[in-house]
């Protein structure tokens, strides 16, 4: 418990160092573009694949489960849309990114710590936490919502593909279903979650990497811990935000 409180304290102190004006605006913008590329474009492939299949699976499962005359066929489209927008895209994609981006950030910063590159920055008078971490946090908070929006479209498209190719639902019914009772607030809720998750993933993993002590073994451990802890935080905050925004 005491260890947890100490860690939490260190986390907030680090955030205090991170959220300062960058020493050099131009360098910050360069880093930001670089990180957007690394976090965003590099993850696009996996997001595309996962989203299409996710939508497809939800569609097929729903179609099989509503094999009852009481439910209209178009509810497949409706269910896919709702689950993809509300839950699958923001949460699953964030969990995937926690694995992919979180481990990269923790090992990159951790390696810089154990090879004294962070000390070298500090010596030069650079705010190392700000220089290394802020671009990653901002980049993820900007690019993850975009990834999630792409994922939403592809998830719904995946549902359509699965429905029509298996012949379980007719195209027109599916399309009717996905347009039924659409609420923009759901998308807003999903994007708020995504931005919060992006913040949690990048800050937690940076924190784990920044305070690594030892050598490459510890860097590996820190990167695993970064993924586990960001995933747990995502699930926890998913509950909190859902309670706050939907209830």
């Amino acid at each position: 418990m005491l260890g947890f409180l100490k860690e939490l304290g260190m986390y907030f102190i680090l955030l205090g160092k991170v959220f300062k004006r960058p020493d050099k605006g131009k360098l910050f913008r360069q880093q930001l573009v670089f990180e957007i590329d690394k976090i965003g474009l590099d993850s696009l492939g996996i997001v595309v694949i996962i989203s299409i299949f996710m939508g497809g699976v939800v569609a097929i499962q729903t179609a099989f489960n509503i094999d009852s005359p009481w439910f209209p066929v178009y509810s497949v489209g409706f269910t896919v849309r709702q689950s993809v927008i509300l839950e699958f895209s923001p949460t699953i994609v964030s969990l995937i990114l926690a694995g992919k981006v979180g481990s990269r950030i923790a090992s990159e910063i951790g390696t810089m710590r154990v090879t004294e590159q962070i000390d070298a920055l500090d010596i030069m008078g650079v705010n190392s936490a700000n220089y290394l971490i802020l671009p990653k946090v901002v980049a993820a908070m900007l690019i993850n919502p975009l990834l999630v929006i792409i994922s939403m479209f592809l998830g719904i498209l995946g549902g359509w593909l699965a429905s029509t190719f298996t012949g379980l639902v007719m195209s027109a019914h599916y399309i009717y279903g996905i347009q039924l009772d659409f609420s923009a607030y759901d998308v807003f809720y999903a994007l708020v979650k995504t931005v919060v998750f992006a913040f949690l993933i990048t800050t937690t993993s940076s924190f784990k990497g920044y305070f690594v002590k030892g050598g490459s073994l510890e860097v590996g451990k820190a990167s695993t811990r970064a993924v586990v802890q960001s995933s747990i935080l995502i699930i926890l905050f998913n509950l909190i935000l859902t309670q706050m925004l939907l209830a």
Binding site: M112, E116, A120, G125
Partner: peptide
Amino acid sequence: QRKNVRKEIGMLFQGAALFD
């Protein structure tokens, strides 16, 4: 204030600490 002094310091680390 330290930051200003640090700009006058060059340091060579045991492992060189070049940015990878």
